[in-house]
Amino acid sequence: MQAILFYLTAVVAILSAFFVMKCRNPINSALNLVTTFLCLAVFYVMLESPFMAAVQIMVYAGAIMVLIIFVIMLLNLGLTVKTRYTHGLAAGGILSVMVLFVANYFTRAGEATGTGGSVTSELIASYGHTELIGRAMFVDFLLPFEIASILLLVAIVGAVVLSKRKV
């Protein structure tokens, strides 16, 4: 049952990701991206992390998508984006398919297996997801979390500096 659900979601995810690139209308691309994000949320649920699934839907499928569509509307991008065929495109495609096969080979050969982390099902059962994420954010990764705020500040300042019309 779970395997069927996984394959169904995976097919939808890959197809919609493909159409993100394929669509000529940027709005259609953006809507396909929403579908991809929703499929990822389903994966999170299947991995027993409902909190991440909720965040995925709220932040990515919600806030970030609104931003992207906003930018598309504001910039008034032409409805169709013409793409030109180059040999680089084909070469890139062939290369990524080859990388995919290599990765697939090593995964199946059992050479690319990771080790289990410290978060186990029992731990989740006793603490709950939200507290574990909170612990990771505010105990283990407090400093990186705070640096991220400086990062956002720098990005905002940079965007303003580069885009304001008159000095």
Binding site: P144, I147, I150, L151, V154, G158
Partner: peptide, 25 residues
């Protein structure tokens, strides 16, 4: 001493430098 700290430090550094490199619009 954590790859996350190093990565975010690198990003703060890089994003400022992107802006500074393109400073003369």
């Amino acid at each position: 001493t954590d790859l996350m700290t190093i990565f975010l430090g690198l990003e703060v550094l890089s994003i400022s430098l992107y802006v500074l490199a393109g400073f003369f619009r």
